[in-house]
Amino acid sequence: METNKMNSSANLVTQLTEQEIQEIMDLASHYDYPQAASIEALKVVQQYRGWVSDESLKAIAKLIDMSPEELDSVATFYSLIFRSPVGNNMIMLCDGITCWMHGCDKLKASLSNKLGIDYGETTQDKQYTLIPVTCQGACDRAPVALKNMQLHTELNETSVLNLVESNSKQTNSSGETQ
């Protein structure tokens, strides 16, 4: 019954791609209630678009039979759902207690200096956004960071800069001048 309801809603959704809709419906099929896929649905869209716009949010809400307001209350609760535009690359520095003892503040200073941005900011060329994240569960390899959800471990002030240099040839034009 729920499935029929979702399929009819799906026809009304024009802002999402077929691929996104398919992935969201697959996830929703794991539950008796499609709302349970709300967070995963937001992540599907975010994976393709980097963030969740108001239009995307409304389309997802319709697809999983929630009100946009309710879905927004969910979207804004979870720290890894972005409701404003972010850079093409997300750099997340762990600020957990062990990484803090291992000098995560120095990594942050090093990256900030290189990119010219503070936590919560995006470089002008839209390549990088820098945010802190909670303990990443890799304390034996501290300090650690995530770049686009990939874990990088045992960093130092110099090696952390590789996170923003390794793909600079493809992505960087002006934002990283020193």
């Binding site: 957990g96 207690i97 062990t98 909670t134 303990c135 569960g137 890799a138 304390c139 034996d140």
Partner: peptide, 11 residues
């Protein structure tokens, strides 16, 4: 949901 600071066992 292993998120307790300093915890890296379930991983």
């Amino acid at each position: 949901d292993e998120m307790e600071p300093g915890t890296f066992k379930d991983r």
